[in-house]
Amino acid sequence: MAELGFEKTAVGYNSKVLISDISFEVNGGEIVALAGPNGAGKSTILKTAAGLLKPLGGKVLLREKDITEYSLAQRSKLMSVMMTQRVATKYLSCFDVVRTGRYQYTDILGNLSEKDRQIIQSSMELIGVWDLKDRDFSKLSDGQKQRVLLAGAIVSEPSLLILDEPTSFLDMGYKTEFFDVLKMLAGEKKVAVLISMHELELVKKVADKVICISSDNRIDRCGAPADILTPEYVEQLFNMKEGKYGEYYG
């Protein structure tokens, strides 16, 4: 059973279709990457998958049931979403940031049960940020922040993770650490992951499937990254001159 499915879905803003006829599935334990130039519509697809935008045609399925049939609470228990965002709040410890991920499980005032505490601790340990728990979130480095936010995303034990360019601002070391964690989540916890990313070299190492969106807003190709992401194709997808990929990335 696919955790997430797009069935001939059209996505866009304000009833203006950006990309139509999108079909793909994300299964448990699978990492599916969205790749393509800026403005192609990667975030729009992710926002539609997250329920932040309504599909403008076709269907979005969660566990083979239309996403609109779920209540907000049910939906948020199944999936976690990590969008590019700047958290401005001051005086917030990393533990607090992760704690808010338990929103659906805590009582009306947000008090934590023993089970909540255990899951928060184990999630933070899993990502390797438990030692940061008392640190002020706003004073962390970008890499640490992204990892804490990831811990906050998995603390609700979702079966589907939606991540919008989580590694764009991270240096190489943090990138590899982040993807280590992601691969482990997919491998061990069988989480389905839909992620947009710019680092095509890493897509090949991380993703099981890549969906390429071209600059004229079409789903251009879809399949195994190693087969699809040839230098020639990448040059075409990103509108580069011939040989430029080899010159800079080869």
């Binding site: 926002k47 997250a50 401005a88 808010t100 009306i108």
Partner: peptide, 21 residues
């Protein structure tokens, strides 16, 4: 009584929505 939601709302509208607010 809204304090729990006020707290997650500080992370942004979209984030609060995906948490089920």
């Amino acid at each position: 009584l809204m304090s729990k939601t006020i707290e997650v709302y500080a992370f942004g509208e979209d984030h609060a929505y995906t948490l089920g607010v």
